[in-house]
């Protein structure tokens, strides 16, 4: 199985997850890592059975490159909040780009960013998305194993709350901490609520969850819902992009 690991606009943190499970991955004799700039000196760009893509598309060069990768790959898996939602850099999508650029950079001419930072799925077909900032490394092993076995992957549609209660936690939202758990996809093992800290949504919005209902609860308790969502890595996620636009208006 020919594997490629690629980076777009991102912090490299999700690629590091590969190092956490590399030993496990290489137990399989079927895996050949053909392209992974962060990990090896000799890389070959040809065709791939599966390409893992980290980062968002935020320059013209990246727009072109993601199409090439798509054309060369049987499966394309986006990994992490940047690739899945647009990342922290997608906060600019909700602001005026020109103003922002002039405020941040001294030499605007050297700057070649696009006005928006977008998820991979805004440009090409994505076969599977791995949520998280950073991702859960064990999910990579599960994906590779499933591809080898030709086993269908189930898309995780449970909220964080499911994992949270399974760990024996009590609900910190009830006890008075702002928590985005009910509208956030699980997969992190309810890491933050297990330490009595509210979920801030790094695994991104859960499709079909009750955005308005949680907004109402935050309002009743005097918590800033808009801030919690807009300052997140996942505010531009397709699942609630429209709702986030409404929050600002």
């Amino acid at each position: 199985m020919r594997v490629g690991v690629f980076k777009f606009s991102s912090c490299d943190g999700c690629q590091l997850a590969f190092f956490d499970v590399l030993e496990e991955l290489l137990k399989s004799r079927e895996i050949q890592i053909e392209f992974f700039l962060e990990a090896q000196s000799i890389n070959r760009f040809d065709t791939f059975d599966v390409s893992f893509v980290e980062g968002s598309v935020s320059t013209e060069e990246e727009e072109e490159r993601i199409r090439q990768i798509r054309e060369s790959s049987r499966y394309l898996v986006s990994i992490g909040a940047c690739a899945v939602s647009g990342g922290i850099q997608s906060i600019r999508n909700f602001l005026d780009f020109e103003t922002l650029k002039n405020e941040v950079y001294n030499y605007v001419d050297l700057h070649n960013s696009l006005p928006t930072s977008r998820p991979i799925s805004d440009y090409v077909k994505v076969n599977y998305e791995v949520r998280g900032c950073p991702i859960n490394a064990f999910e990579l092993v599960e994906i590779v194993t499933s591809i080898i076995l030709n086993k269908s992957l189930t898309v995780n549609l449970n909220p964080v709350c499911v994992e949270c209660k399974a760990k024996g936690n009590i609900c910190i939202l009830v006890l008075g901490s702002p928590c985005l758990g009910p509208i956030t996809a699980s997969g992190c093992g309810a890491l933050c609520p297990s330490f009595k800290r509210g979920c801030y949504g790094c695994f991104g919005p859960l499709r079909g969850s009750n955005f308005e209902g949680l907004k109402q609860i935050f309002k009743e308790r005097g918590w800033d819902f808009q801030e919690s969502i807009l300052s997140s890595f996942n505010s531009y996620n397709k699942n609630f992009r429209d709702e986030v636009w409404k929050l600002g208006s």
């Binding site: 991955l25 194993t145 449970n158 909220p159 709350c161 499911v162 009750n210």
Partner: peptide
């Protein structure tokens, strides 16, 4: 309703389950 599943998980009689096969690489 947030569909958060809190109620079913603290319920002493809710017994619904899912079964998964976890394979080694």
């Amino acid at each position: 309703c947030l569909s958060c599943t809190n109620c079913t998980q603290v319920c002493p009689t809710c017994f619904c389950f899912d079964i998964k096969e976890v394979n080694s690489i």
